[in-house]
């Protein structure tokens, strides 16, 4: 019993709506990613779940029990802070086992668990150091170790990998995901890195200015973005959005092709070679559009090319509300059938 449910939760800082009427559910044993640009309220949402902030409205429940007014300790969670929050006067080992000491876990068990966790996060050789003697990435791993050693049913992580290099990040990503699945933890994971979100999540909640922009599986967010904001946020490079009358037409770069008999004329502005593929940045009527081509593209910048894409790959958005149009059509149909 460890599903987390937020029901119409809000948190205001004066006039600032840091979290605004947010409802979401993280199923038991699943990994939910809170994704969004900087300052959109991800950390605040996480702190509300942890009980470090008091909600101004709404209810939070864990495992079916209302925890809105419980203290952090009573919620029985573990957490990785965005700022690590390591105790500067304690060694790495003492930092990691802090919670076990508080709960008076026996010495033998403490040592055993410490050894296992230190191996997972790769800190076995640094256990006697103080946090100030560690690099940023190592500190982050101490924070990670402190959170996973508790083996709590619920684990909250606030950008736990933001300071690691690409290789370590990839390793830790897999490690966290494996651990989460093996222990059946319910995890809420904050990031602004969409790769992390896409690769780890069972469910992604994309936030914007304190509100939920879209809540769905990674595939849904990628294949059926509900708004132009989601379309722009997910994918790298993001979805192309071309204005046509009162609509925005969205096409993923990998769905655009450069063909001789294409129906749209474009001019190449720049070419980025990424190795396995190349990104060709073009312009149609002054609107930028990027094209992903396999391999090493020989297109030259300044060249005139013709682009084409399959209509089935088009996403249509209303240009003022930025809402997906087939959804509106669906809603209209639903509304009509309800009548």
């Amino acid at each position: 019993m460890s599903a987390i449910t937020l029901n119409r939760v809000s948190k205001f800082w004066g006039a600032m709506r840091a979290v605004d009427d947010v409802s979401l559910t993280a199923d038991e044993g699943s990994l939910l990613v809170l994704l969004g640009p900087s300052g959109c309220g991800k950390s605040t949402t996480l702190r509300l779940i942890a009980g470090l902030e008091e909600a101004d409205a709404g209810t939070i429940s864990i495992g079916g029990a209302d925890v809105t007014h419980l203290t952090p300790a009573q919620r029985k969670i573990s957490m990785v802070f965005q700022s690590y929050a390591l105790f500067p006067h304690l060694s790495v080992a003492e930092n990691i086992v802090f919670g076990l000491r508080v709960r008076r876990v026996s010495r033998a068990e403490r040592d055993g668990r410490l050894k296992r966790v230190a191996d997972i996060v790769g800190l076995s050789h640094l256990l006697e150091r103080k946090p100030s003697q560690l690099s940023g990435g190592q500190r982050q791993r101490v924070a990670l170790g402190r959170a996973i050693i508790a083996e709590a049913r619920i684990c909250l992580m606030d950008e736990p990998l933001s300071n690691l290099d690409a290789k370590l990040r990839h390793e830790m990503r897999t490690e966290i995901r494996t651990l989460q699945q093996r222990l059946g933890m319910t995890m809420v994971y904050v990031t602004h890195d969409q790769t992390e979100a896409m690769t780890m999540a069972d469910r992604v909640v994309l936030m914007r200015d304190g509100r939920i922009e879209q809540n769905g599986s990674p595939e849904e967010l990628y294949n059926r973005p509900a708004t132009a904001f989601t379309a722009r946020f997910i994918g790298s490079p993001p979805m192309n959005l071309v204005r046509q009358g009162d609509r925005l037409i969205g096409v993923r770069p990998e769905h655009v092709q450069i063909v001789a008999d294409g129906d749209r004329a474009a001019r190449v502005k720049a070419v980025e070679h990424l190795g396995a593929d190349s990104i060709v940045l073009c312009e149609i009527d002054g609107q930028p559009i990027s094209v992903r081509l396999e391999g090493f593209s020989k297109v030259q910048s300044g060249e005139d090319v013709r682009l084409a894409w399959d209509a089935a790959h088009e996403h249509r958005f209303d240009s003022t509300s930025e809402v997906r149009l087939d959804d509106i059509a669906n809603e209209d149909r639903l509304a009509a059938s309800a009548r």
């Binding site: 203290t71 952090p72 300790a73 573990s78 957490m79 802090f98 508080v102």
Partner: peptide, 10 residues
């Protein structure tokens, strides 16, 4: 944060 981290650990 330090106090918060400690309070989360119970």
């Amino acid at each position: 944060d330090l106090e918060e981290a400690a309070s989360i650990e119970g």
